[in-house]
Amino acid sequence: MKYTTEIVVDLPRDEFIKKLDNPENMKHWQRGLVDYEQLSQNPGQEGARMSLSYQMGKRKMDMVETIIKRNLPEEMHTTYDTKGVHNIQKNYFKEEDGKTRWISESEFQFSGFGMKMLALLMPGAFKKQSAIYMKDFKAFAENGTSVEHL
């Protein structure tokens, strides 16, 4: 399953990247994030891995992020792996009149019957979740609005 989401954030690209690239800020725009841990000696660089833990309602989800391409401020590509799901994220950041257009191309690959059925039955849920993260980042970056205690 593939889709693209995008949003314009009212910040110059350099400021946008500083906020996006700081793992301490993730709790302010990634709903349900409970913890993260750097798994590599080279955090933030190509090949670096980070463990992420989320609580979504009664469901706990752990995943591993791997940076596969880091060419900031233009782009950063990552993968996210959790049970039954491999997600490839290609993120592009374009400067537009003092604002930043964030374009995110998502590709989900599913293994296991349950995850494949979920993807077939609820494909919109994945795109909706991506859009929520982008809107929450925009609110945090522009206004300092945090989702940490929601």
Rank of each mutant, 00 (worst) to 15 (best):
M1W: 01
I7H: 00
V8T: 14
V8W: 01
V8I: 12
V9F: 03
D10W: 03
D10K: 07
L11P: 03
L11A: 05
I17T: 11
K19S: 08
K19N: 05
D21C: 09
N25G: 02
N25S: 02
K27S: 02
H28I: 03
W29D: 02
R31D: 10
G32T: 06
G32R: 04
D35C: 08
Y36F: 14
E37T: 15
Q38P: 05
L39P: 10
L39A: 09
S40R: 02
Q41K: 07
N42K: 02
E46V: 15
E46K: 03
R49L: 05
M50N: 05
L52K: 01
S53E: 08
S53Q: 07
Y54P: 00
M56R: 05
R59V: 08
R59P: 01
V64S: 11
I67Y: 05
I68L: 10
K69L: 12
K69C: 10
K69P: 07
R70Q: 11
E75M: 12
H77Q: 03
T78Q: 02
T79I: 11
Y80C: 11
D81K: 13
D81V: 15
T82F: 09
T82Y: 03
K83C: 03
K83M: 09
G84S: 06
H86P: 01
N87Q: 12
I88K: 14
Q89F: 04
Q89H: 10
F93Q: 15
F93P: 15
K94A: 11
K94L: 13
E96F: 03
E96R: 09
D97G: 12
G98D: 13
W102L: 12
W102E: 13
I103L: 13
S106Q: 15
F108H: 09
G112K: 07
F113Q: 14
F113K: 14
G114V: 14
G114C: 10
G114R: 14
A119C: 08
P123D: 11
F126V: 08
K128W: 01
Q129D: 11
M134N: 08
D136G: 01
F137Y: 00
F137R: 00
K138Y: 00
K138D: 04
K138T: 02
A141K: 01
E142Y: 00
T145N: 04
S146D: 07
V147W: 07
H149A: 12
